[in-house]
């Protein structure tokens, strides 16, 4: 038995402590927004926040995530709704599959840096592959979110 805290909710699950968090979230908890893409830390589809830091859940065993605060795409609503709305508004997604991971990585970046340059974005987002090639819109959506959140804060 392991206990996971995901999006402010507690889940008791019966999973091998070695099981990657990705599969625990998807199969045991049943939150399927976090995606499998490579299983080797190469694509970023499985990115979630663990105590506020972006991690590849396909490489993180359940044992390491126990007790930590986990945020998945399903919880982003309560963290940065603006980001999500802009992302939808700018039609970033094509097939949408990589987008959970992209949004989580972007969320983490914006927490650290509220006015990222293109280079900052490239560095932070380079672990996230998008086979559909939505990179240009990802960059724009992050800039726009930063812009909007910054002006709102000043107000």
């Amino acid at each position: 038995m392991a206990t996971l805290i995901i999006n402010e909710k507690k889940y008791k699950i019966d999973a091998d402590p070695e099981m990657p968090l990705l599969w625990a979230i998807r199969d045991s908890v049943g939150l399927t927004g976090t995606k499998y893409g490579c299983g080797k830390g190469l694509c970023g589809s499985c990115t979630v926040l663990l105590d506020g830091k972006p991690i590849r859940s396909c490489l993180t065993p359940v044992s390491q995530a126990e007790g930590a605060v986990i945020l998945t795409i399903e919880g982003v609503e309560n963290e940065n709704k603006v980001l999500q709305e802009i992302w939808a508004d700018m039609n970033v997604a094509q097939c949408g599959y990589c987008q959970s991971g992209q949004i989580i990585s972007a969320l983490a970046l914006l927490k650290e840096n509220n006015n990222p340059t293109d280079e900052d974005i490239d560095t932070a987002m380079n672990g996230n592959i998008c086979r559909c090639g939505t990179y240009q819109r990802i960059r724009k959506a992050i800039h726009k979110t930063a812009e909007l959140t910054n002006t709102t804060t000043i107000k």
Partner: peptide, 12 residues
């Protein structure tokens, strides 16, 4: 806009 654009950012 894509009819699915809102869905795609929700993980749903």
């Amino acid at each position: 806009k894509s009819i699915d654009s809102k869905g795609f950012v929700s993980g749903k």
